[in-house]
């Protein structure tokens, strides 16, 4: 009963957030200069007799309607499960988004899989050897990792590994189901770029948590009871320091999608980020609105899953 009620409240909150996002996605492009019809028509839009064609295009795209009507039609379609088609290519938005998911998904997944274990090891070690060499090195490296822009880092890696050393490709995406070797080699640089940023953020987080945990009374108890140092640091302290990380990773997924957009663009992976970028530049309203909404749903769901996972791992949180 209580769980049903809670689920109901969460669903209502989700609906409100999605409604806000839908309004925002709808207005964001319309409030920026640029006419989709003009962009679609291309150079011809400059011709003196183009006015009629433009008007017809606008009517076809429903852009001659007032905004509230446009919004109402779009929302109604979405509620029926229809996200519309690209005004540029005529391909269904859902299809475009689905095609763009794998590169983004593998990029983020790869970055998380690399950054999480490394940040745990380095964060814990730095906190344990506080003010020692490991600590100083970790603090310096994480500061750099957080401060260096992903785009710059991506280009830097390309210059070193693709141009100068010529050992890794500078971009492209192959499905792992078609050719895993090629996929793996292509993903090394983009995943590294994103993992360095995420690793910097997470290491800082683990470091702060672990510094706090290591000072706790229960750590002194474990010391006084003769529990070995590795077990104290990597079992007793780690479980406490790392549990909140689940939430952080969940929250960071949104930021990661944002970071992934840039990294994708640098490496030409053709993921969600690139789809959004090109759609924004083309003023492809339907695609931008649909992609933003669908991405939001996924990010929110990941957040909820992280919350659920946290509840399972931390015994103190129970219903």
């Amino acid at each position: 009963m209580k769980i049903m009620r809670r689920a109901g409240i969460e669903a209502a909150k989700l609906a409100v957030v999605l409604w806000f996002v839908s309004v925002f996605a709808f207005l964001a492009l319309r409030l920026t200069p640029g006419d989709p019809a003009v962009l679609l028509l291309g150079p011809q839009a400059g011709r003196p007799d183009a006015a009629e064609t433009l008007a017809r295009l606008r009517t076809e795209m429903g852009l001659d309607q007032p905004w509230p009507v446009q919004y109402g039609i779009w929302l109604g379609d979405i509620l029926r499960g229809d996200f519309g088609v690209s005004s540029r290519s005529g391909v269904a938005v859902v299809e475009l988004v689905a095609g763009a998911v794998p590169p983004t998904l593998f990029l983020i997944l790869g970055a998380v899989l690399i950054a999480v274990p490394l940040s745990i090891i380095f964060g814990m070690a730095a906190a344990y050897f506080r003010n020692g060499i490991v600590d100083r090195a970790v603090r310096l490296v994480t500061t750099l990792a957080i401060a260096i822009p992903a785009v710059w880092l991506g280009l830097f890696l390309i210059i070193i590994f693709s141009v100068t050393l010529d050992i890794l490709p500078s971009g492209g995406f192959t499905s792992p189901f078609d050719d895993f070797g090629e996929f793996f080699i292509q993903m090394i640089l983009p995943v590294t770029t994103l993992a360095i940023f995420l690793g910097g953020v997470l290491t800082r987080f683990v470091y702060a948590e672990a510094s706090d945990v290591l000072r706790q009374d229960y750590m002194r108890t474990a010391l006084a009871m003769g529990i070995s140092t590795p077990r104290r640091v990597f079992v007793y302290a780690m479980r406490n320091a790392v549990t909140p990380m689940i939430t952080i990773v969940g929250v960071q997924i949104g930021a990661l999608v944002g970071g992934a957009v840039l990294v994708e663009a640098v490496f030409g992976l053709g993921g969600i980020g690139q789809l959004l970028l090109s759609s924004v530049l083309n003023r492809d309203y339907q695609v931008v609105q649909g992609a933003v909404l669908l991405t939001t749903i996924v990010v929110l769901l990941v957040g909820y899953l992280a919350d659920l996972a946290y509840r399972l791992v931390d015994p103190r949180i129970t219903e």
């Binding site: 009374d217 002194r220 108890t221 003769g226 007793y236 406490n240």
Partner: peptide, 23 residues
């Protein structure tokens, strides 16, 4: 380390925080 908890043990104040909360 082999003496602690084996030949001599120590217990502390504040029962709120002396045990590890996640085990």
């Amino acid at each position: 380390q082999g003496v602690r908890g084996a030949q001599a043990s120590m217990i502390f104040q504040d029962p709120m925080s002396v045990l590890n909360p996640v085990f």
